[in-house]
């Protein structure tokens, strides 16, 4: 077991990959608690796909990916809001329409510039080959996200739970809503290298959903999600090393399995617990 854990650490690329995966797993896990409680899973999916053209343009212009992703993430959200207000089309339809449109635009731009290898890396992640520049970008973006949430978590919880009350006591709910979306765009960029754009949403939903089944206290929910996101990413990276398979795929499959186990065995909200107490 010890050798199993230590052997990959002889390779510098594995040390980086394990560190980045774990960090990104933790960042996404914290955010996932807010997204699942707010009911924004679909929004997470949308924003994570919609950042693609921004990432490509940033690559063209030599700007940080995070900046491009941030701008396009917010553009997508604004467009979703605009279409919804101005037409009779329903919300989930508008979200699906806008994010696939943005994603397709990203694919077009990407196919014009990059090799098919780059394309695969952006879509499915390439944490084993992460460059030092991308590593630092991921670390900085992760820290910004974590610090912002640590400082403002009480406002964000209130915003998710009861936006009406938040407004009556003078909180700017529009700003909080955009803040949460901005954090979403940033963490998408952070997770880009690890699991790729397609699977980011899993990291942004699964830990929160699992923790939600396991706790009725927000603080504990975040800790469970953190443990799951961090450990899931760490173990997933190890497994992908030994099986020589996709890292992003491994991490997400592992997290999904943990979710299924929680769904069955959770002490209070699990299927077994419910079967045992038919009254509730």
């Amino acid at each position: 077991m010890i050798t199993w854990l230590l052997e990959p650490l002889h390779h510098a690329f594995m040390v980086k990959a394990l560190g980045v995966s774990t960090l990104v797993g933790c960042v996404c896990a914290v955010l996932s608690c807010f997204l699942t409680l707010k009911g924004w899973a679909l929004m997470g999916d949308a924003v994570s796909h919609a950042v693609l053209p921004g990432v490509v343009l940033a690559y063209w212009l030599g700007l940080p990916f995070a900046l491009g992703a941030f701008v396009f993430g917010l553009m997508a959200v604004t467009l979703i809001g605009f279409i919804q207000q101005q037409t009779r089309v329903k919300e989930d339809t508008v979200i699906g329409l806008v994010f696939t449109g943005f994603f397709a635009l990203g694919l077009v731009l990407l196919s014009k510039t990059a090799s098919s290898v780059d394309l695969m890396h952006i879509l499915f992640g390439n944490v084993l080959g992460i460059s030092d520049r991308d590593l630092w970008q991921t670390v900085i973006v992760s820290l910004i996200t974590l610090i912002t949430i640590a400082l403002l978590h009480r406002d964000l919880i209130l915003f998710c739970f009861d936006p009406t009350h938040a407004r009556t006591i003078g909180l700017n709910t529009t700003l909080l809503s955009y803040l949460l979306l901005a954090l979403l765009s940033l963490s998408t960029v952070a997770a880009l290298q690890t699991v790729g754009i397609i699977l980011v949403v899993a990291m942004l939903i699964t830990p929160g959903a699992t923790a939600y089944l396991l706790s009725d206290r927000f603080g504990i929910m975040v800790l469970i999600a953190l443990a799951m996101g961090g450990l899931g990413s760490l173990l997933g990276t190890y497994i992908s090393y030994y099986l020589d398979v996709s890292t992003g795929g491994c991490i997400v499959v592992l997290q999904t399995v943990i979710f299924l186990l929680a769904m069955i065995f959770a002490p209070k909200h699990g299927l077994l617990a419910k079967a045992r107490s038919p009254l509730s």
Partner: peptide
């Protein structure tokens, strides 16, 4: 709003009662 002068007591149907809060 800045002085929190108005309080709103919502209808029960408008609240997510599963929310992990005490």
């Amino acid at each position: 709003q800045r002085q929190s002068l108005v309080a709103y007591v919502p209808q029960s149907e408008d609240v997510d009662w599963q929310f992990p809060l005490r």
